[in-house]
């Protein structure tokens, strides 16, 4: 996965955070979670997934090289 895709996903999260579509929706998901709250819980979980992808595919390459260099020195 390209790092540009990862940064695109993070930008997507920021845009999706502005959920005007659930602003006055009082439906309950699973019988007890207001849909606006449920949506933002999904965003929190989405953030975990996106940041996992970020550290896997968009981690600064020079830092990886630096870590390898340090381990070679040891």
């Amino acid at each position: 996965m390209s790092k540009y895709w990862v940064w695109g996903l993070i930008l997507g999260l920021v845009l999706l955070h502005q959920d005007v579509w659930f602003w006055t929706d009082d439906r309950l998901v699973l019988g007890f979670l207001p849909v606006g709250l449920f949506y933002h819980i999904c965003l929190s979980i989405g953030a975990v997934v996106c940041w996992f992808l970020a550290v896997k595919y968009a981690w600064p390459q020079d830092l990886v090289e630096q870590t390898v260099d340090e381990s070679n020195v040891e």
Binding site: H17, P34, L37, L43, V48
Partner: peptide, 21 residues
């Protein structure tokens, strides 16, 4: 009401990690 979660918590989840990164 529940909007506080979006205003303070989910946004912090995205942006704090962004700052760390």
């Amino acid at each position: 009401g529940i909007g506080v979660y979006g205003m303070l918590a989910s946004s912090s989840g995205i942006l704090h990690s962004l700052c760390f990164f």
